[in-house]
């Protein structure tokens, strides 16, 4: 019996000489993997315009009903995003969010991305409703912030002379995609029709959400 106990103690004793596996958290932060799903960010194009086109697809995909989008129309005087529409209101309720990443998967223009920040605690519930200002990343150096006035399409968004009239060449935005095709009429109609559905669905939940 004594032998068995000494054997057990020996196992424990060996660990005194091993390197600790714990991390002194606030001082040392645990690195995360590439796919880690943390706090959301709304991305921008290299010229400072928002990527988000206010399509509400993220909101439709969200299983927790955490996203609230109100789209508005761009015009050539005041422009937020390169397309026709942009998100006037974009809010994520971080208390409802379950960090499933479906919004990122659903976003057709890679605007909403779950980044690596995992320190999102707060003292009040109101502070956990993240507004567009909190989510939007700062414009890249040298680029103008939104809204951009007197907008002239910057070179990288000009239609290319290639056979496809909608194709736009340029550096891969956000490092994820290589080519960007603006939607043609058929899609726009389809998307509009569906968006109305998505918006209607949103309305039902607005009261719970607030």
């Amino acid at each position: 019996m004594l032998g068995e106990m000494l054997r057990g103690l020996g196992t424990t004793f060996k660990h005194i000489f091993k390197k600790p596996v714990t991390i002194s958290y606030p001082d040392v932060k645990r690195p995360v993997f590439e796919r880690f799903r943390g706090r959301h960010e709304l991305k921008r194009h290299p010229n400072g315009l928002e990527r988000c086109i206010g399509c509400s697809l993220c909101s439709a995909a969200c299983p927790a009903d955490a996203i609230y989008v109100v789209p508005a129309e761009n015009n050539n005087e005041v422009r937020f995003s390169p397309g026709e529409r942009y998100a006037e209101v974009y809010e994520i309720n971080m208390i409802r969010c379950i960090f499933c990443g479906f919004c990122e998967e659903a976003c057709p223009v890679d605007a909403i991305v779950l980044e690596h920040n995992y320190e999102i605690s707060s003292y009040s519930r109101e502070a956990m409703i993240y507004t567009k200002e909190m989510l939007l990343v700062p414009p890249p150096p040298g680029a103008q912030d939104v809204p951009q006035r007197g907008f002239a399409p910057p070179p990288q968004f000009m239609p290319s002379p290639s056979s496809h009239p909608n194709r736009v060449e340029g550096p891969p935005p956000g490092g994820r995609i290589t080519t960007y095709v603006a939607a043609d009429e058929e899609t726009t109609d389809y998307v509009r029709a569906n968006l109305m559905d998505a918006d209607r669905d949103n309305k039902i939940d607005d009261e719970d959400y607030r």
């Binding site: 697809l57 439709a60 479906f102 057709p108 890679d110 080519t179 095709v181 569906n194 559905d197």
Partner: peptide
């Protein structure tokens, strides 16, 4: 299964599938 993200910038069909899958 939704089409790969890269495809939806190039193909209309993929974009429609993407929208249909994530809305309905």
């Amino acid at each position: 299964a939704p089409p790969p993200k890269e495809e939806i910038y190039l193909s209309m069909e993929a974009l429609i599938h993407h929208f249909k899958l994530w809305t309905e």
